[in-house]
Design a protein around this nucleic acid. Sequence first.
DNA 1: GTCTATACGTGGATAGAC
DNA 2: GTCTATCCACGTATAGAC
Lengths: 235, 235
Amino acid sequence: MFNTGNEVEETKAERTRRRVYDAAMTLFREQGFDQTTMRDISQAAGMALGTAYYHFPSKEAIIAAYYEAIQYQHHAYVVDHLPGIKSPQERLRMIFRSKIELLQGDRKLIGVIFRYTGDPLHPLSLLGEGTRDLQQQTVETIGLALRGERFSREVAELLPMALWSLHMGTLLYLLYDTSEQQTRTYALIDQSLALTTQLLGVVRQPLLSPVVLPILRQVSGLLDAAQINLTLPKT
Amino acid sequence: MFNTGNEVEETKAERTRRRVYDAAMTLFREQGFDQTTMRDISQAAGMALGTAYYHFPSKEAIIAAYYEAIQYQHHAYVVDHLPGIKSPQERLRMIFRSKIELLQGDRKLIGVIFRYTGDPLHPLSLLGEGTRDLQQQTVETIGLALRGERFSREVAELLPMALWSLHMGTLLYLLYDTSEQQTRTYALIDQSLALTTQLLGVVRQPLLSPVVLPILRQVSGLLDAAQINLTLPKT
DNA sequence: GTCTATACGTGGATAGAC
DNA sequence: GTCTATCCACGTATAGAC
């Protein structure tokens, strides 16, 4: 709680750790993740190879720290900018777009997230245990857009994961988007959210509920049976 | 066309190539892809390291050959078993399930496909140029289920990619499915296809077209703008 | 063109001395 | 906490046998 003075000692290690991190991020952005070696990083940070490994057990650990930082920054940005916006669609738009803005300069880096998805046991697997917290936080950040909105039970159950999936989809798209300033990614977000709003409108129509409700329930049942919850398939 | 006798010489190299491939696959299945080294493979195949590299430029090239083989086998199986089945849903069921059956023993291997998805330029990226042919063939194999069926223009445009996505989703799910005999994956397929059929039924209802058509068109417009076609985002 | 033997460079990760 | 030295695996020669 208090500053007990041992902060100085802590800071010593933390400062070195940050030197590693900063050097790594600079090189990652310049050359890409794979092209950057731990030797490059330690050299750029002006230390021995072993020192860098002392602070980060692996190159992947540096990327993991980056993802946490991004999520933290994004959440802070969202919390900061949310009050000015009323409509849920506009809120979602702000949330989705700001995430892209945050990542736009790091397109060479974000591909690395997807690399471990096929390996359920890997700590960085997007769908695995290791990233559960980060995933949960992302869902929560997105969920801020819907605060105060009222949905039927069925929709409330499905919407967070649907939006999370959409969010991951936009990140994947960003990777492949070679358009200037990634304008296509922003356009995709806008159109996807317009579609989402349209679908939510349909779902809310009482007249259509004989058609809509069975479908929603079937989706829910499917996800339940597959044990896909917010955190996705269990391992 | 004819067997001109030079088949023997071809066979010599091809047989060695197959020895490499077989040894590699055995080891991949036993130990996993990453745990198997090219030295293991060449040793198991009873040859020098250089020989293995002579036939496959990298370990990944062996996996690439595996994916081609799987797609070929699956297509052959589907063509063989399709005539006995009438309903599109049952056809799709057969197609999706047989793919899982084909891969079931190789769960340690299929994760490798997803590894390069975050790297647009990598030849094995699922969404990249390098796998376009394979992807196209998969779409075609799945499309065999719909032969002779009539859909509206809007649906015909969207369905192949939707089914391809569903197919990739089931593969990803298979990876994470620790249930006995992967029963959950099979259940997921059945339920997803039931849902698909249900949705197609709704879409076909003329009474609902004022609601459904705008949505479909919006989806189409979105995919067009994003330049997502059958082969997915351009690089 | 196919295969062997062997050695080399690089990069991730670790062990152990200080 | 930091450094030096070392390990291990991938991939790449290369020189030569057939």
